[in-house]
Design a protein around this nucleic acid. Structure first.
Lengths: 202, 202
DNA sequence: CGATTTATGTAACGGACGATACACATCGAG
DNA sequence: CTCGATGTGTATCGTCCGTTACATAAATCG
């Protein structure tokens, strides 16, 4: 009992990758089905048969983005030995990731649909949740650093996580506005300058 | 030779204010003429006669935003005695400004149209230029602080300005995502924590 | 071989968009 | 008053949007 009917005439993953790139560059609302058919080399019925709708296609593209572009950044959180090193490398990896010549600049999750009203509600909510998950990841890493006695028990992990997340989000805007990799790396370093004052002593 | 013809039946400034609010909340592309007619209480021909086009209306609304909402923030840059105090107050004022109950959260200039492709090119370019002007303002204030011997001559004013601008931009995203005033104020304080390491000694 | 199932290409759907044509209302000038 | 000028309301323009109907192509199943 194998695939019945006419087989799909295109590579679904390749098509999804192209959709991701154009959503990333133009955002959800500013990407039309016509844009997608051009970029994916498909006609509308093929897209709808394979992905369901523009909204579902975007959500799949968002998953692909998180897996292929996000992980390279967030892996450092757990792999680095200290929270200080982890966040520093996270920010520096972000700077490099946001200024790759071949990819759109900045983060798809931050830039795709910043308006909470007027656009697609499901998409907005999904993006918002993913952004907030990143705050939680940072916060948990800081709490782990308390347990491991890297930083003191008095550290306000929630505020510090919000601060570094804020810097990362801001880097998306700067990257989209054309900031150089050097500028973003300098921002990453600057953001770490206050570390000693942000965490309480171990 | 005074105003000939039928006089305008509405308050132009009040209508512009309402347009600003809805553009601020929904962004440029996600605000339709229908949204504007509802919010402004006008029919399309009245809007077009008074403001020209959706694009021109937005640009006027953007000017109004800068005058009524931006100045409260940026005035501190020149009025404060030191660059340190100026930037700190700038960030704290930003935190308060972005979390006023009556207004949309976050900055209109940052959130209205973050995509450089697919939307209105003129609007995108205008917003980008205004964002970059803010970097220049910060940079000049830091250079003044060098002249006034508040900070050392080795300070990398460009990088430091980019860093604080980045924090401010990030606060717009956080505010739009629902961050509390306390969270944003904590971010402002956190961002200042590295000041001593960011500037060279006087 | 049909019969069935799935994918594709063409062509178009209803609806929303930004923007206007047109008739009418309301002003100042003469 | 009449005349020219300008604002307003209705009703609509052409275009693009996301989506789909329909006929046809290409595969498996019996």
């Amino acid at each position: 009992m194998n695939a019945r009917g006419r087989p799909r005439g295109f590579d679904r993953e390749e098509a999804l990758k192209r959709a991701m790139n154009i959503f990333w560059r133009r955002g959800f609302d500013n990407t039309s089905i016509s844009d997608l058919t051009d970029a994916m080399g498909l006609n509308p019925p093929s897209i709808y048969a394979a992905f369901g709708s523009k909204e579902q296609l975007f959500l799949e593209a968002l998953d692909l983005y998180s897996q292929t572009n996000g992980d390279g950044i967030w892996d450092y959180l757990e792999s680095a030995n200290t929270a200080h090193q982890a966040i520093w490398m996270l920010l520096r990896a972000t700077a490099e990731n946001y200024t790759r010549g071949t990819s759109p600049r900045g983060c798809m999750i931050v830039l795709s649909a910043p308006q909470m009203e007027g656009g697609n509600a499901t998409v907005c909510e999904e993006l918002k949740e993913r952004r907030q998950q990143n705050v939680s990841l940072l916060q948990r890493r800081l709490e782990r650093a308390i347990v491991e006695r890297e930083i003191g028990r008095e550290t306000d992990c929630t505020s510090v996580a919000a601060y570094f997340t804020c810097v990362q989000h801001g880097m998306s805007i700067q990257a989209r506005d054309g900031a150089s990799r050097e500028t973003l790396l300098a921002i990453a370093d600057s953001a770490m300058a206050g570390w000693g004052a942000l965490v309480s002593p171990a």
